[in-house]
Design a protein around this nucleic acid. Structure first.
Lengths: 335, 335
DNA sequence: CAAATTATGGCAAACGATAGCCATGTGATG
DNA sequence: CATCACATGGCTATCGTTTGCCATAATTTG
């Protein structure tokens, strides 16, 4: 079947001609309502509506120098953890009347760098979520672009991070209250900034509570790594396993159950992230929740704010975390 | 802490001045390599590199009329079903050197329409996934925009849809092979095009197999609707429930189990979509899988293709579906 | 060797919208 | 009634890039 190709869009000139005013007046009717007579304005808006006119963002950008477009880069779009971040960012961006460009860096620093370079001139700034770029790569990117880091912190660049210090303390407290005296941490990728934070926090909190934690791994933060990680847990005789993230935790639980280890009676398992799946696996997963939507929104708001001030002050925000206790944790079998 | 605001980007004029040629020559050095002397070109490219010059996509778009940007609109970004679509689309877009703009329509036709209108001038085309727009709204949108529909079909507009006819047949065959003689369909939102296709397919396939299906609902396609839907299943005394999607199915199973109904011994449950969660709930969910990544990619490729031809031929693609049999279905208790 | 090509690069006009500046008309103020 | 302020709208340069057209030089052709 055939249809015609989309007809040419109406421009500000069409609207101007049709309503018998100058283009500049049409422009003002849209952008500075007070600057033009109300009845003229109504008329123009009517004509514009009838012609299906919408201002061309490209042309606007060319003149004003900013594009009203923000980019969000995530390592892997399908990872449910980022779904919340994306949603929050999208909301915040839409609320401000801007447009969101989404980029998937495929967990690769090279891809991320290239994306930043290519998208750079087309957007007003970037939110880099769980960036894979090394510190100096980030600094270089920040020279030409406005950017906000999400769950990554380096001096001189704005960032929004989850409060892992508190979060890991909550985890340790929870385990301690159930009589656990030691735990293993199943580590994620070594490059992961949040992974480092989680481990550091865990260790500090454990020391305070007279608990011991041991780190094993690294494991890929996926369901598939569950078996290897679970087997290591069994070997360790630990009563509690804290996993780098929920995906890994769910994989671990599945394998433990397969091998006849009961969760939580024999081993308690905790994850990080509180992804969608944590609420539907069996047993329901105890996990440290970040407010990912808030984080995404906050990062975007910060970016917008940053773009508006002349000489900028770099800030950082820390977002609360809270432990969602479900069914995968319980009293230590040694108690 | 203070940093300076990002420095101004180099323009084509800077490069031209610095390399002692006219701006047009610089432009050609980038866009039509054969049109300029090789040594001049090398020189220009060198200078450009040194200045960190990257062409401004906005200015380019203004002149050429196309933006190398495509938009993907989905009803709800956090819905895991769309994660695959987004990923596939993102890949395809990146592969073609273009940019993806992601929009969340919040399940609202009004929001969708507004988004199309606002984004329209800034993108070369749209992939509308599970569009909430009524048919004529869609036709109107197609007049000014190049667009491809995903899991929605109306004459005159290109589309990519899952093969629900085959899919529902697979479902019915599977149930029949387990001795089920009737089933209930827990319907989703009445506006849902795919919901209609699913129901139509189910009914046709059931007739062929001498089975009966009854539709109940509508229910919101979410976990939260599970209880209401599950209770209706119990009341119906059905031996099998086919749910509008996996979210609903998981919610239904949870409620059934709570009420002492065993799955699949007492009732078999089937979903649609094969979302991430289908593989981690208990029992693992039998569900009809669509190849969402392929679908996203295919839609994007179709869109790109569509944008390139002069007088266009509107095509439609049908993508295969396959039943993933897991643990939530089994023999009918009545057999 | 004249004529015709071809290669190469410059000039200037778009593309669509914005904003600074100016011109006109209106009503208020003294 | 002169002066002034303000409201309103037009004119025009501008943003960064592409592209059609022209000029010049170099090369080929007969």
């Amino acid at each position: 079947m055939n249809t015609t190709r989309p007809r040419k869009r109406a421009t500000i000139l069409d609207v101007a001609r049709e309503s018998g005013v100058a283009p500049s007046t049409v422009s003002r009717a849209f952008t500075k309502p007070g600057r033009v007579n109300d009845v003229t304005r109504e008329h123009i808006l009517g004509v514009a509506e009838r012609l299906g006119y919408a201002p061309n963002p490209m042309a606007r950008a060319l003149e004003s120098g900013h594009t009203n477009t923000l980019a969000l880069l995530v390592p892997d779009i399908t990872n449910p953890y980022f779904a919340g971040v994306i949603k929050g960012a999208e909301r915040a961006v839409a609320r401000s009347g801007r447009t969101l460009v989404l980029g998937d860096t495929q967990e690769s620093a090279a891809a991320e760098e290239q994306l930043v370079r290519r998208l750079g001139p087309a957007v007003d700034g970037f939110v880099l979520s769980a960036s894979r770029l090394p510190d100096d790569g980030l600094r270089r990117a920040a020279e030409v672009n406005t950017l906000v880091l999400l769950n990554r912190a380096i001096p001189g660049i704005a960032s929004v991070v989850a409060d892992y210090a508190s979060g890991t303390r909550q985890i340790i407290d929870h385990l301690a209250s159930h009589g656990h005296q030691s735990a293993v941490f199943l580590a994620g990728p070594p490059e992961s900034w949040s992974g480092r934070m989680r481990w550091d926090g865990l260790r500090a909190a454990a020391t305070d509570m007279n608990m011991t934690v041991k780190r094993i791994g690294p494991y890929a933060p996926t369901l598939d790594s569950g078996p290897a990680a679970a087997d290591a847990v069994i070997t360790s005789h630990a009563t509690a396993a804290v996993c780098h993230n929920d995906m890994l935790a769910i994989g671990v639980i599945r394998r433990l159950v397969e091998r006849g280890v009961r969760v939580p009676q024999d081993v308690s398992v905790i994850g990080f992230d509180n992804i969608f799946g944590a609420d539907i696996c069996t047993p329901l997963l105890t996990t440290l929740a970040e407010h990912t939507q808030d984080a995404g929104a906050r990062a975007v708001d910060a970016l917008i704010h940053l773009g508006q001030q002349r000489s900028r002050t770099v800030k950082s925000w820390q977002l609360p975390t809270h432990l969602v206790v479900r069914d995968s944790t319980g009293p230590s079998r040694l108690r």
